[in-house]
């Protein structure tokens, strides 16, 4: 049977990891791609990054932010998922060679994993910076350590690693020679990363935006990149951070906040 939850586990505060058996998608999945998931006949289509894949299974990591993610977190091992479509989006071109720096926060900690793995295999020197609110929000640190040459951790309350944000740490190591920076996390964090590396290091980010269908029909994920209209689902989700109109994309993700809040009585906007 396809679309079955093989494993589910809470890995941090409000954050879950699930393994899904879907050989058709797992076989084609490349780093940077995502799937659209729909949980019931009444469900919405929600995008999730494929954070790992084996021959038959894919792994998704998500934070409970609204109605549908809450419903997904309540499913048990063995449950059937109504619809999964993918792999969608362009695979990451896995650019860059030499000293590469990854900056991750939130579910982006898992989002960078497939890229990290692929670029590690190519023999690059990888520095990974993980940022979180506190140590309760950290996960997958050992897994990431295995694929990086150096891991730096920053928490806002200082409960693990340095006190501060991942972007602060990035600022500190900017003096070193970096060939490429990758960022994945909440939009405001990625915006700050792009400010820090502006005109110094080429930076690529994986965007998470509103999506309805995920296959290019609706254009709700549109974003101005280099003044041109791009669709995150078709042209992305990975873009050059310095070409993105950050304020616009952050604003657009808040479009349905009122409605979402009404649906789940709780809303966390802006990534």
């Amino acid at each position: 049977m396809e679309n079955i939850i093989k494993k589910k586990q809470k890995i941090a505060e409000n954050t879950f990891e699930i393994d899904l058996r879907c050989p058709g998608i797992a076989k084609n999945a490349r780093p940077g791609q995502f799937v659209m998931v729909r949980l019931s006949d009444n469900g919405e289509r929600i995008p999730f990054t494929i954070v790992n894949s084996t021959k038959t299974n894919i792994t998704l990591v998500f934070k409970v932010v609204g109605f549908s993610t809450k419903a997904l977190s309540n499913l048990r091992k063995g449950s059937h998922i109504h619809d999964i479509a993918g792999p969608l989006g362009c695979p990451s071109p896995l650019e860059g060679a030499g000293n590469l720096c990854f900056v991750a926060g939130g579910v982006g900690i898992a989002g960078i994993y497939p890229l990290l793995k692929a670029l590690n295999q190519k023999g690059n020197n990888l520095i990974t910076i993980i940022g979180a609110k506190s140590k309760d929000n950290l996960f997958w640190v050992d897994k990431i350590r295995k694929e990086s040459n150096k891991v730096l951790i920053a928490t806002e309350d200082g409960s693990a690693g340095r006190r501060g944000t991942a972007v602060d740490v990035l600022g500190m190591i900017m003096r070193r020679r970096l060939d490429m920076v990758y960022a994945n996390g909440p939009l405001p964090m990625m915006k700050n990363v792009s400010k820090v590396t502006w005109r110094m290091v080429k930076t690529r980010v994986a965007l998470s935006t509103l999506m309805v269908d995920g296959i290019g029909l609706c254009g709700s994920c549109r974003v101005k990149v280099k003044e041109k209209q791009k669709f995150v689902c078709l042209d992305g989700p990975e873009f050059d951070a310095h070409e993105i109109d950050w304020d616009e994309i952050i604003r657009r993700t808040t479009m349905f906040c009122d409605e979402e809040a009404h649906a789940s009585k709780k809303c966390k906007c802006g990534g």
């Binding site: 309805v212 029909l217 349905f256």
Partner: peptide, 27 residues
């Protein structure tokens, strides 16, 4: 915010049945 392609508007209402939100979950 508030600018849609006709496709998006029709997919939200017609395919995802956003017209009966929140009963259907697409806003």
């Amino acid at each position: 915010n508030g600018v849609y392609s006709a496709n998006e508007y029709m997919i939200r209402t017609n395919l995802m049945r956003g017209n009966s939100f929140p009963g259907h979950h697409t806003p």
